[in-house]
């Protein structure tokens, strides 16, 4: 294992900007920041060749805290912005960060199509089952009987969105689940996700100490997936649908061609104009 590690003088801290996060103390997102910077240091990726794209929400603050290129865009559109960047600049390592509301509710459509498009990028969703920046409303991953939001006093009453299952049927080629209580395990998943050619999706269970204090129990509920990652979508579907969403590790990985536009020059503008001549 040691021999595989690139020789580098870069430390995780070198990938932090030093801007003080606004996250609540105890927030799982700190561990994601730690895992992301560890992964970048491990891969020894030059700062200028990495872009971290996000939307809006607690977790979407991540780009400001990492010292790579970043874009803190609008709510729900991180994957779209990242897809445009990757299409225009295939040489960059593109990471996308966001939360469950940003990614699965307002950005749900982009999630489907980013999975389907299979561009070579990594999407990290910090799933805390709640909207943290707008006062703790239910998100798509909130349990139907969670009654703590004034907006849904009887609970959202609708089944939870299962991110891994949606990713699978939408065509994602790498699906993993991590837990912020195990940042080094999460780092490993992120490294694998970044190295995976194609769209890699990492759901990071990230407790919200403010709105979901009961998430402290997650620590006892999470466990490593029992089986090796499968490349069979039927097996993956069965595993994903039958577990309780607390198993961590790579859930599915397969290799299919990555979508990337062709880029080569075969004509100049003048030649394009020739077709218009009468």
């Amino acid at each position: 294992m040691h021999g595989n590690t690139p020789i580098t003088g870069l430390k995780p801290k070198d990938y932090k900007t030093g801007i003080k996060p606004v996250w609540c103390p105890g927030c799982g997102d700190f561990s994601v920041l730690s895992a992301v910077t560890k992964a970048l240091a491990h891969l020894a990726l030059p700062h200028q060749n990495v872009a971290m794209i996000s939307g809006i929400g607690c977790s979407s603050r991540l780009p400001a805290y990492t010292s790579v290129y970043g874009f803190h865009g609008v709510h729900g559109r991180a994957l779209a912005l990242a897809s445009g960047l990757k299409a225009a600049r295939p040489d960059l390592t593109v990471l996308v960060a966001g939360g469950d509301g940003d990614g699965f509710s307002i950005g749900g459509n982009h999630f489907l199509h980013a999975c389907r498009r299979n561009m070579d990028m990594t999407y990290i969703v910090m799933d805390n089952e709640v909207y943290g920046m707008t006062k703790g409303q239910a998100s798509p991953t909130t349990a139907p009987d969670w009654t703590q939001s004034k907006l849904t006093p009887h609970g959202p009453g609708v089944p939870q969105f299962i991110p891994a299952a949606i990713a699978l049927v939408s065509g994602a080629t790498f699906i993993a689940r991590g837990f912020t209580g195990n940042p080094n395990g999460l780092t490993k998943l992120l490294v694998e996700a970044i190295e995976h050619p194609g769209f890699s999706f990492v759901q990071a269970l990230s407790p919200c100490p403010t709105y979901r204090p009961e998430h402290k129990a997650w620590k006892k509920q999470v466990r490593p997936v029992e089986e090796e990652a499968t490349s069979d979508p039927i097996i993956a579907a069965q595993r994903i649908q039958t577990d309780d969403g607390m198993s961590t590790g790579v859930l599915y990985q397969t290799t299919v061609p990555v979508w990337q536009p062709e880029q080569g020059i075969s004509a100049d503008t003048g030649q394009l104009e020739e077709v218009f001549f009468v």
Partner: peptide, 14 residues
């Protein structure tokens, strides 16, 4: 919604 954000991404990329 995607197309406008995609071109923002492309342009951000130079």
């Amino acid at each position: 919604l995607a197309s406008i954000n995609m071109i923002i991404g492309g342009s951000f990329g130079g």
